[in-house]
């Protein structure tokens, strides 16, 4: 069980690495799905089957499919891969890598000695989550629905074809 957990964590991190280093958008997206699936497995092992299911269905399923659609719609082709490769030159990596390494070191320094007690750890099933969602978190559910509605309207507005607006200079 424990081994499985570390294995999935490793897979998730490796796949994530491939996501940010990839040159082909479709490949990167597939690696991202792998990451998400691995995280879903870890959720399951943490005793959160509902979260695991949502991760697979909504994240890896719906949201990623949306991205696949957009990538296919844009249809960038081979020239984009070459461009990506050019953009991923070594020099551009140094600053961000250093920054992220420092941040990681700080996080590790802060988190590792936390030694949180995990005595009352228990699996939380979908029923408990549902009770919480439609009990004390009722308002948040409403807010989330408003957010989704706003996103819907915004996305529709943004993707409308330009008719009256003048074309910007390139």
């Amino acid at each position: 069980m424990q081994l499985l957990f570390y294995l999935s964590a490793l897979i998730a991190l490796l796949a994530a690495w491939r996501v940010i280093r990839g040159v082909n958008a479709v490949h990167a997206l597939l690696y991202l799905i792998v990451t998400l699936l691995a995280i879903a497995l870890m959720f399951f092992m943490l005793g959160a089957p509902f979260a695991a299911a949502l991760e697979v269905i909504i994240y890896a399923g719906a949201i990623m499919v949306l991205m696949v659609f957009v990538i296919m719609m844009l249809n960038q082709g081979d020239s984009a891969v070459g461009q990506e490769r050019a953009w991923l030159s070594g020099r551009i990596w140094r600053g961000p890598a250093l920054l992220c390494a420092v941040l990681l070191a700080q996080l590790g320094y802060l988190l590792l000695p936390a030694a949180l007690a995990s005595g009352d750890a228990a699996a939380v099933d979908a029923v408990a989550v549902g009770r919480a969602l439609y009990g004390p978190y009722m308002l948040l559910v409403e807010l989330a629905s408003m957010l989704l509605l706003a996103a819907l309207v915004g996305a529709w507005h943004l993707t409308r074809a330009l008719k009256h607006r003048p074309r910007e200079e390139g």
């Binding site: 961000p96 920054l99 992220c100 420092v102 941040l103 700080q106 996080l107 802060l110």
Partner: peptide, 16 residues
């Protein structure tokens, strides 16, 4: 984005 990250680093540095 780098600015935000740097800010996070600085804040954490102050905390640490």
């Amino acid at each position: 984005a780098a600015g935000i990250a740097m800010g996070a680093v600085l804040v954490l540095m102050v905390v640490t």
